[in-house]
Amino acid sequence: MRVLVFEARRLGREAGFVGLAAVLHLASLIQSILDGGEPAGTVLFAPFLAVWVAAGDTAANARGGRLDFVVTRGPTLPGLQLARFLLGWSCGTTLLAASTLTLVVRGQYLEYSLEYLGLVGYWAAVGALLGQRVSAAATLLLAVTSSALALWWHGAGAMLLLGQLPGDWPAVLVTAVLQFIGCAIPFGRLSWLASLPAFLAWLPWLLAPVVLALAVKAARRRQLPAQEEG
């Protein structure tokens, strides 16, 4: 809990993030209130917000010796990663809530919101894992790129490369990997996946704890060399 508060305070002082998050949340709320028919489009940013926050520049912190005072006689590195994951998930969740608030209150889009919550959690876990190797910006770029690749595959790639629809065998294998591992846009938003079994939309809820466990394991194994060894 202590490390979560510590990380939340630090995040709250990141002016660029606070500004962007405020704009996204406000836009989501306004759109959600004015156009209550479907979730605000800004909800698409929720997984990206989560992945960036959860990545938290752990790799650069570790390389720069900035974690020495955190992990010696303080919280553990896995604890820090868990805190960053929770923060990332929370940030994505509040944006999701702002985007779907009026709908959920009316009992609509509840399933959609829960599916999306799993997706946001999955991307927060990805951030906590990848953030130990690359910067938060690189993690975000990776999420954007892999999502764009998944969309391209759905839209044109499968037909161009395999001459098949993304839902046809064996193109569906690539579709599944790209959609469930690399795409931050939820299953429900992609109509061409309607042919796949509906339960697959809940897959991020299964993948998130697996990826989070990998992140915790990587953190436990992480050594913290100094920049200058003497």
Partner: peptide, 23 residues
């Protein structure tokens, strides 16, 4: 074990008070 490195570096955007609170 408590350790003070040669060149103490701290996480950005954490105040001195935050660091003590954390520990």
């Amino acid at each position: 074990v408590a350790y003070t490195p040669t060149e103490p570096r701290f996480l950005p955007r954490a105040t001195v008070e935050d660091l003590f609170r954390l520990r």
